[in-house]
Write a protein that binds this DNA or RNA. Sequence first.
DNA 1: ATTCTGACGTGGG
DNA 2: CCCCACGCCAGAA
Length: 112
Amino acid sequence: MSEENSFFIKVYNVVRQIPEGKVTSYGAIAKYLGSPQSSRMVGWAMNASHSLIDVPAHRVVNRKGLLTGKHHFGGAKIMQQLLENEGIIVIENQIQDFEKHLWDPIHYLKDF
DNA sequence: ATTCTGACGTGGG
DNA sequence: CCCCACGCCAGAA
């Protein structure tokens, strides 16, 4: 299995499509990739995406809109700052109007 | 080889 | 709405 076809690479390619000011969830990505029960693997993939500067990992949160991965950004406030830079309001790790900012790949990337 | 641990999600109570 | 138990599966110890 080549690197290009690995699950991790597929995750990165989806994350790269998330527009500025939008967010999605680990589960939504897993479901879109055909493995609805592998949401934890999406989180694992993001953990390994640290060196990939073109993968906006801060736009991926859990299903409630909580910034569960903020501790992996070097600083506890980095993830929130990146999101607020894009116009997203975060209070106590919770994205406000989460559904309004939600970008579900299964809906926007049908042919991807 | 075996066990444990998650940047998760779902279902039941 | 909250809390808990379980399924998931790649890596690390």
